[in-house]
């Protein structure tokens, strides 16, 4: 099965450079991924790179702790949409949830939702920090806030998605929202298991599309052929244009 359409190709680490974002967008194009997911500082750049494609731009707010003030989350989300984000992922305020201050948890989400209007909103629960009852409660708050997608993990906590949690979420929300799994999903087989368990979307920083690895193998052979030829003939221009044709 081609799983590329399920994948948000993700780069959120602090040290990501412009070059890394460019590579991410190029690979997303090459593989036909559903979306790229990046920090808000890079939304405008990604928008430039992906403007003529159908690949969506997902960005994050209050990431990865979920502990920024609601006003800051709202502003960051709005600015990201203005810069070209097609989807927003916010981290639930886990401290408020753990304080059993559910009103503030809900307000935090609804305020962001209102600010971005029709832009799809994903809420990250950070399941590694929650027990079963807390996951169920968090899901029901998300449903009350009408979120579009419930996402398991930020990828910056002690662990990522689990099949158990995915099934709990599925059982709680049924088809009222989509489920996105993320954190530690690094190969095709694992991704498939989650899709079978009820996940609708997959967030990963690994290129897990099997089509892409065969493409990479093919390309590697072509590069090698022309590199060898280049050494012998020393006509870089001609070799290059032949190679680029063959790569297409």
């Amino acid at each position: 099965m081609d799983i590329s359409k399920f994948i948000d190709y993700t780069l959120l680490k602090a040290t990501s450079s412009e070059r890394d974002v460019i590579n991410l967008c190029n690979e997303a194009k090459l593989n036909g991924f559903y979306a790229v997911c990046i920090n808000t500082a890079y939304v405008a750049l990604a928008k430039q790179l992906l403007d003529d494609t159908s690949i969506k731009i997902a960005s994050v707010t209050g990431f990865p702790l979920g502990a920024t003030s609601t006003a800051a989350k709202v502003y960051e989300a709005k600015k990201a949409v203005e810069d070209g984000a097609d989807e927003i992922e916010m981290v639930m305020n886990l401290g408020f949830l753990k304080s059993r201050n559910f009103v503030s948890v809900l307000k935090d989400i609804i305020d962001v939702k209102l600010a971005i209007k029709d832009t799809p909103l994903k809420v990250i629960l950070e399941i590694s920090e929650l027990n079963k009852n807390e996951i169920i409660k968090a899901c029901s708050i998300c449903l009350d806030a009408n979120v579009d997608v419930i996402k398991t993990s930020s990828g910056f906590s002690k662990s990522g998605a689990t099949l158990t949690a995915t099934k709990i979420i599925k059982k709680t929300i049924k088809d009222q929202a989509q489920i996105m799994v993320s954190g530690g999903i690094e190969d095709y087989e694992t991704a498939m298991k989650y899709l079978e368990a009820g996940a609708d979307r997959i967030g990963t920083s690994k290129n897990i599309n099997p089509a892409s690895s065969s493409l990479q193998t093919r390309n590697a052979k072509i590069y090698k052929k022309y590199l060898d030829a280049n050494h012998k003939q020393n006509n870089s221009e001609a070799q290059y244009s032949k190679m680029s044709q063959e790569l297409r």
């Binding site: 959120l12 680490k13 602090a14 990501s16 920090n39 808000t40 500082a41 890079y42 939304v43 707010t61 990431f63 990865p64 702790l65 502990a67 920024t68 003030s69 006003a71 800051a72 502003y75 960051e76 600015k79 990201a80 810069d83």
Partner: peptide, 17 residues
């Protein structure tokens, strides 16, 4: 916090708040 990767405008808004 902690990535430093939010856009400048959002850092300003968070600071003011």
């Amino acid at each position: 916090f902690p990535l430093g990767a939010m856009c400048t405008e959002a850092k300003i808004a968070e600071t003011k708040q």
